[in-house]
């Protein structure tokens, strides 16, 4: 995208000498400036300021207090639980995403569109519903509730419920980042590998996986960010047992509601840092994916 605008700017600069008249494809300078200022102002107030507030409030009682927050066993427990949950949910959804992308981009079959729509479903519903359905299924008065109680199995208000709800809300991320990419790449290389004698797994691991690695990374990063930060769905199924079933976002809520603002923002700053790293990796993997696609197109169209 940057290259695109740059080359256009260069192209017009080469043709025009002297004072620049407004080209046919852009606005007068004062309008451009106004629009850029509006963008900066809007994003500054609505997005950047809240982000900076997190760090500002987190350090409001000093660096020492900030560090102390993370020595609290209940905070540590919430971090552990968050990491554990993501460590289960993300790999599960990654395997699913790869399988779904393979099935949906390498084959044509009836109901393909419906399947894509169903995979998107968790993005469309409220995260609260994502938690609600597991309560309705596994809760005390849920469909399977009595059976679970008889067999002394606890799902909701315990780790399995938290993992399930997290898996639900992060369900489509990897699949959604892979499907358009694999669609765009086509499967000529996979076909070539087949004619050279590679079997299905060899095609997958040696050709497809290296080809989609940046897109896959992108999907995993988004999936992980959401898994660690999910609030609504997990809030419904967690039961809010302190030091036991509270993930980091839920712990933030408790600290906040108890007016321990600095501590709440300190924990929040850790999640914000994760979000910033996510954005950085996302931007990076996006540009790598775009580059890979460009090279692929060049390889097939400009073979001179």
């Amino acid at each position: 995208m940057g290259a695109f605008t740059n080359s256009r700017a260069l192209a017009s600069a080469r043709h025009i000498t002297g004072p620049l008249p407004t080209s046919a494809r852009t606005e007068p300078a004062w309008i451009r400036t106004t629009l850029i200022v509006i963008t900066f102002a809007f994003l500054g107030v609505f997005i950047l300021w809240p982000l900076l507030t997190v760090f500002h409030e987190g350090f409001s009682k000093g660096f020492g207090f900030y560090i102390e927050t993370f020595k609290d066993p209940i905070t540590i427990k919430s971090i552990e639980l968050t990491l554990l949950t993501a460590a289960i949910a993300v790999p599960l959804n990654t395997v699913f995403g790869l399988a779904a992308a393979w099935a949906l981009t390498r084959f044509k079959f009836k109901g393909r569109q419906l399947l894509i729509a169903l995979i998107d479903l968790p993005l469309w519903v409220s995260p609260v519903i994502g938690g609600l359905i597991y309560i309705l299924l596994f809760g005390r008065q849920g469909t399977l509730g009595p059976w679970l109680i008889d067999h002394d199995i606890q799902i909701v208000f315990a780790l399995p419920g938290i993992v399930l709800a997290t898996t639900f809300v992060t369900f489509p991320f990897v699949a959604r980042s892979l499907i358009p990419l694999m669609e765009a790449q086509g499967h000529a290389e996979e076909e070539a590998a087949l004619t050279l004698g590679a079997n299905g797994w060899q095609v997958f691991f040696r050709i497809t996986l290296p080809k989609v690695k940046w897109g896959l990374l992108y999907g995993i990063i988004l999936c992980n960010a959401r898994a660690m930060g999910e609030f609504g769905a997990v809030s419904v199924v967690s039961g809010h047992i302190r030091g036991k079933t509270n993930t980091m976002p839920l712990h933030i809520e408790i600290l906040y509601n108890e007016y321990q603002f600095a501590a709440a923002f300190a924990v929040a700053s850790l999640l914000s840092l994760l979000a910033l790293i996510t954005l950085f990796l996302k931007t990076y993997s996006e540009s790598r994916t775009a580059q890979q696609l460009r090279e692929a197109q060049e390889l097939t169209t400009l073979s001179h």
Binding site: A188, E189, E191, A192, A193, L194, T195, L196, G197, A198, N199, I207, P210, K211, Q292, E295, A296, L299, T300, S303
Partner: peptide
Amino acid sequence: AYKRRAGFVFQHYALFQH
């Protein structure tokens, strides 16, 4: 295809880019 041992040269070559 992978059992036939037919050497196929594709129109756009389909070389493995990576």
